[in-house]
Simulated scan of single mutants.
Amino acid sequence: MYNLLYRLKPYFKRQETVVDNSIFRIHSTFTTVLLITFSMIVTWSQFVGQPIKCFTGNSGVPVNVLNTYCWIMTTYLMPDGFNGPSSFVASPGVVNDRSDELAKKYYTYYQWVCFVLFFQAMFCYFPKWLWQVWEDGLMNKLVCGLNIGVCEKADKDKNKGILLDYLVRHRNRHNVYAFRFWFCEALCCANIFLQMYFMNWFFNGDFITYGLRVLSLSDLDQEDRYDHMVYVFPSVTKCLFRKFGPSGSIEQHDAMCILPLNIVNEKTYIFIWCWFVILGILTAFLVVYRAAFLLVPIMRPAVMYKSNKMVSKEAIELLSHQLSLGDWWVIYMLGCNIDPQIYKEVIAEYAEKIRNDESNIKQTNLSKSS
């Protein structure tokens, strides 16, 4: 398992060229690795260890047959067994079912947890994969070595010229680039809330309030409560084994089953619940911030100046008002990758080019009108 987890190390490597933001990386990189790690742990516990152990007393049913049968046919509990003092039952939910099929709560999802975690990880990674396809290394090409401040002046001037030439020739052509990234950010937010909805369905309506119920029981005495983790991921359950008797009649054997796997599952999902709540808040904040950023243009110069205080406010104001939203986003992201001193020079020269172009256009219009 260590070798498998070690192979995930490259996903945490620092990006040489930044094409997203920290919340995007937390969602698409850290959460993906986290869920894959949990999936590996649960898979190891399920398929390498013994996920279920059942016994029926002196029924004569072979233990291996009973374990296999109860694992495949699923186990159940009686919700009424969670009420009242714990000293009155063998284990929470393990009470006489009185042949009441409607009152039984069956547990089937623990067999699928390892697969669900893996597919959750893939859905978390999807926005990053989609953005990598759309971005296609554009930012890395634009940086072209300008992220290193200590370099030959000739090389620096050459690369600056290439960058400025690109920005001038491709002016007003980056709106699709910017909106694709913002779509991927919104996709991260939607993914978290849709996954929480899916897990709530997967756990029969017990996931949304899972963490709250677990935390709310911390002030109660152990004798007067049952941990909600036990209700969702029981470690002791019931199983009804049926077989033909000597005369052809159906014999029923009531079995008690221990599920060590659920000890891992309950801790895994209390962490996932807390993490998804935090991540949901962060991604929702990101979407709200991005919406405000798009709808309130006055925010853009302030945001750019805050991240690049070496650049003059005059140049920032000019570019923020004269460039399209997509072009503005490109030069903003360049500020996250280029050396600050070089970036200052690039922005100053680009602002001067924009100013000269606007001046030439005004003079042309005046000459035509006269």
Results as ranks from 00 to 15, higher is better:
207 F>K: 02
139 M>W: 08
180 R>A: 12
318 L>P: 00
52 I>M: 06
368 K>D: 07
41 I>D: 01
131 W>R: 09
188 C>N: 11
56 T>Q: 04
107 Y>K: 04
353 K>C: 14
119 F>Y: 11
123 F>I: 08
336 C>V: 14
85 P>M: 07
328 W>Q: 06
53 K>A: 11
237 T>H: 02
15 Q>D: 09
347 I>R: 02
43 T>N: 13
277 V>F: 11
163 L>W: 02
343 Y>Q: 09
355 R>E: 01
328 W>F: 12
122 M>C: 05
349 E>N: 15
104 K>G: 06
117 L>T: 05
294 L>M: 12
132 Q>K: 14
203 F>M: 10
286 L>I: 09
110 Y>Q: 01
95 V>A: 02
333 M>T: 00
73 M>N: 12
211 G>N: 05
169 R>I: 11
100 D>S: 03
365 N>M: 13
245 G>E: 05
266 E>M: 04
121 A>F: 07
370 S>W: 04
13 K>Q: 10
354 I>P: 00
275 W>G: 03
7 R>V: 09
192 I>V: 15
93 G>R: 00
175 N>K: 03
83 N>G: 05
185 E>W: 02
268 T>F: 04
293 F>S: 15
54 C>A: 05
211 G>T: 04
148 I>F: 14
131 W>I: 01
204 N>K: 11
308 N>I: 08
335 G>Q: 00
9 K>T: 12
38 F>M: 14
44 W>Y: 12
136 D>A: 13
29 T>V: 08
124 C>G: 02
172 N>T: 13
183 F>Q: 08
172 N>D: 15
281 I>H: 08
230 V>A: 09
262 N>D: 02
205 G>P: 06
265 N>I: 00
343 Y>C: 05
61 V>C: 03
37 T>F: 10
146 L>P: 04
283 T>L: 01
114 C>I: 05
191 N>A: 05
93 G>W: 00
88 F>E: 13
117 L>K: 01
146 L>M: 15
214 V>F: 02
252 Q>E: 15
27 H>V: 03
320 S>A: 12
283 T>C: 05
185 E>N: 09
251 E>S: 08
190 A>T: 07
116 V>A: 07
287 V>Y: 01
90 A>R: 11
18 V>N: 11
237 T>P: 06
195 Q>W: 10
20 D>H: 02
261 L>K: 02
77 L>I: 07
52 I>P: 15
285 F>P: 13
64 N>E: 12
134 W>N: 10
14 R>I: 07
296 V>E: 09
9 K>E: 12
171 R>F: 13
45 S>Q: 13
51 P>F: 02
103 A>N: 06
186 A>P: 13
135 E>S: 03
57 G>K: 01
71 W>N: 09
